[in-house]
Nucleic acid binder design. Structure first.
Length: 299
DNA sequence: AATCGCGTCAACCGCTTCGCA
DNA sequence: GTGCGAAGCGGTTGACGCGAT
């Protein structure tokens, strides 16, 4: 005889106030309960989930735990170079629209991307003594970090000891797709497509070039190590040496107290990374789509 | 061995948006 | 048009792990 036959109906709390709400880290048991419930009833109606599953958690908490951790699609582990590239770009377009950015990175959650941004990107800005939203930092991202990321992706693909698999092939294709954008305008796409990054400026590149596309990038060395005063004056030349197409007037000057001041004297800076038509050309929908497809392939 | 500092990331909080009656 | 509850979103916090001292 079960409780229902005896006329006993278990009390179901109707509000969070009626529940002895639990907070803090989830236990394995709670995870199992939530998984089991969602597997049977599906996602959504999170307040009901909280009430009916027996979990002493708020609906919000259940939703968050499911979306950020328990969902089968959730992809854990280091943010790959391609993913970083995509995050930088999409953030330049949409700013802190984390969930929107996450939609374009298969298996990644908004929380993860937000954390990446705060722990890595903002740290870079801090180390350079820039505001993360400042034009200087945007320029640094645009002219240093992104080309460097692309270079690293390329290095990974080119390396004999790297990943000779489809990853390498698709990466090369992607880079080529950037390089081969045809437009009547001088484009940043061409610039970064043919830029020759001086390996001496990038210690870890001057050694092995076999780092995996999924290697976690050192958060400290990313931008700052190739952005020190000795190297700064070389950047415009590096770009120009690469293609001869680089026409934007980027000047690096010395500020007081040895602070580097980058000045990109473009006429217009629309997007986060400066934009104008140059970045728009690189990051057209086709290229973003292409990069996304690679990420879906990886996932 | 102890503790300190720092980085990471899961989880919470408060606000906004959405959907429905 | 309005009110209300649910869901979603972004900012922030705090626990934890790990390396340095």
């Amino acid at each position: 005889m079960d409780v229902y036959e005896r006329g006993f109906i278990p009390e179901i709390p109707h509000s969070e106030e009626e529940m002895d709400v639990r907070k803090g880290p989830w236990t394995e048991e709670e995870d199992s309960m939530l998984k089991a419930y969602v597997n049977i009833h599906g996602e959504g109606h999170w307040n009901s989930v909280a009430r009916l599953s027996g979990l002493k958690r708020t609906g919000k908490s259940c939703r968050l735990r499911w979306l950020n951790y328990l969902r089968p699609e959730v992809r854990r582990g280091n943010i790959s170079l391609r993913e970083q590239l995509l995050i930088l770009e999409l953030h330049s377009r949409w700013g802190n629209r984390w969930s929107k950015i996450a939609q374009h990175l298969p298996g990644r959650t908004d929380n993860e991307i937000k954390n990446y941004w705060r722990t890595r990107v903002q740290k870079q800005a801090k180390q350079l003594k820039y505001d993360v939203n400042s034009q200087q930092f945007r320029d640094a991202m645009r002219y240093v970090w992104i080309p460097r990321l692309i270079e690293r992706i390329r290095a990974s693909s080119d390396s004999p000891s790297g990943q000779p698999s489809t990853n390498a092939a698709t990466t090369t294709t992607y880079i080529d797709s950037i390089s081969n954008i045809t437009t009547s305008q001088i484009t940043y796409a061409k610039t970064i497509g043919s830029v020759q990054v001086d390996r001496s400026l990038m210690p870890e590149l001057s050694g092995t070039s076999s780092d995996s596309l999924d290697t976690q990038v050192s958060s400290v060395t990313d931008l700052t190590d190739c952005y020190n005063p000795q190297n700064v004056s070389n950047f415009p030349n590096n770009f120009q040496n690469g293609s001869g197409l680089y026409q934007e007037n980027l000047t690096a000057t010395w500020g007081r107290d040895d602070e580097v001041e980058f000045q990109a004297t473009e006429e217009q800076s629309n997007g986060w990374l400066g934009g104008g038509d140059s970045m728009d050309t690189v990051w057209n929908e086709e290229n973003i789509w292409f990069l996304q497809q690679q990420l879906y392939d990886e996932a």
